[in-house]
Write a protein that binds this DNA or RNA. Sequence first.
DNA 1: TACATGAATGCTGCATGCAGCATCCCGCAT
DNA 2: ATGCGGGATGCTGCATGCAGCATTCATGTA
Lengths: 243, 243
Amino acid sequence: MILRGKALRDQVYENIRDRIISGELHPGDSLVEVELAAQLNVSRTPVSNALVMLRERGLIYDSGGRMEVSVLKLEDVVNLYWCRMGLDGVAAFLAASKITKPELKTLETYLKAWETPVQESDLSALWVSDLKFHHHIYEVSDNRHLIRFSEITAELAAVYRRNTIRRMSDPQSGTSRSRDDVRAEHQAIFEAIASKDPIAAEHAARQHIQMVIKHLELADMSLELREEPPILGATPSITARSL
Amino acid sequence: MILRGKALRDQVYENIRDRIISGELHPGDSLVEVELAAQLNVSRTPVSNALVMLRERGLIYDSGGRMEVSVLKLEDVVNLYWCRMGLDGVAAFLAASKITKPELKTLETYLKAWETPVQESDLSALWVSDLKFHHHIYEVSDNRHLIRFSEITAELAAVYRRNTIRRMSDPQSGTSRSRDDVRAEHQAIFEAIASKDPIAAEHAARQHIQMVIKHLELADMSLELREEPPILGATPSITARSL
DNA sequence: TACATGAATGCTGCATGCAGCATCCCGCAT
DNA sequence: ATGCGGGATGCTGCATGCAGCATTCATGTA
C-alpha cells in the first residue's frame, strides 16, 4: 500500500482524489483527518497536506473548518467546460503548429479507438480513450501551464461525470450523443492537426466542446423532467454502500 | 503582523507570494522552512503548508527536496500568455453576454485610467489599472473556475514582469509599446463588451494578448542583443540590491 | 412543550520532537 | 595536487501533543 519512493502526502492525495472520482466518496461527504489517517495507516500530517492540495485544485472545499467533497452542480460543470473551450482551442492550435509524425501516429491510435465497435457495457473504455486523445493534444502543445490546467479541469470533470454517468448513459433518456457524433468531431480535430492548420484545429476543438456543453444542458433538462418529486418528510434513501 | 481572524498558513502564503512578486525573493532562491518560520514568527507547520500551496500554483518548485523560487524563462511566460489568450477570450465572451449597467460603469473607470496622463515614473499605477481592468472582466464572466485560473496566471505573470520591468520599460530599448497602443486595445475590448457582442469581445481580447506576446518576444530579442557577453571566469556581477 | 443555556464531544490548526536523507567539508591516500 | 571516503551538518517529512472553536446534546425553566 505504502511506497517509500514517494512522498506520503502525494500518495494520500492520489488516494483521496481517486476515491472522489470513483464515487466512493460522495459530494458533500466531510473528510475527517483522523479517519482518513486511520484508513491509510498514516498520521494526520500527510493527510492535512493532501487536503490542502485537494482544496487548491477545487476537489474539496472548506465548509467552515470542515473539509467537504465539492458538490458540482450543472452550472459549475458548464463553467468548467467554458474554460476547456478556451484551453482546448489553444492546445489544438499549438499542437497543429508543432506536431511531429510519430506524435500524429499516436494521436491517430487514440482516435481509432472510437471506430472499433465496443460493448455497450464498456463505456469506460471509450471514456479512457477520449481522455487520452485530448490529453495527447495537450502534451503535443508542449506548454506546461496548459497541461496543468488541463489536468485540473479533467479531474473536476471526472468527478461530475462519475456522479452522473449512470443517468447520462441511460439509453432511455434519448439525450446521449451517438458515438458517431463524438467520433466525427474528434476526426475533424485530428484532420485539422494532421494538416497542420492551427486555425482549423482550434475551431474544430471549440466546436467539439460546444457540443459537449449543449449535450450537458440537454441531458440535465431531461433528467430534471424525469426526476420524481421528493416525498415530503421522507428519510434519506439508504445508499448501496451501507448495505 | 499576525491577524487571528485568518488561518496562519494563508497569511504565510500571501507573505511569501508577495515577496516573490515584489522581487525580494529572487528566482532560484531556496526557501528554508526554519528561516521563513523565524522571520514570520511562526512554527514550521504553517510554513510547510504555505509551501505546498505555492508549489501547487507554480510559484515555487521542488528541486530535489529543496523548494526554490520558480525561474520563469521567456518561453514559460509566452506559454502562460497562450493560456491567457484562451482564457481571456472566453471571459470576454461571457462578460459581453452577462454584463450589467453598473458593472460596465466600473469597467469604464478602469479603462479611463489609461487616458489620464501619468508620470513617466508611475508605471506601476498603469500596471495596477491594467490588472483591474482584466480582472473585472473575469469577475463579470461569473465563472469561478475562470477566475481561479486568471488568478494563477496573473500571479505567475507578475513574477516575470517584476523581474524584467526595469529592462522592459527602458525607453532606450525602443520596444516598449506606447500607452496609446494598449489603451486602444482595451478600448476595443470595452466597446465590444459594452455593445454586448460576445464574438467581437472575444476577438478583441485575443488580439490584445497576441500583441502582448509579440511584444514580449520582441523585447526579449532586443534584450538579448543588448546583453553584454559574459566574461569567462568572471565572478557573478554585483547586483544593485547588494549595494 | 418549547426554548435557552451550559457542558461535553470532536475536529481542526499550530507547535514541536524525531528520524532519515542528501549535502558538504575535511582529511587521507594515491 | 587530486580524487576518494567518512563524518558532521542541515533540512525535510512524518508523528504526536496541545489548545481553541464549533457543534451538539442534555437539562432545566418558562
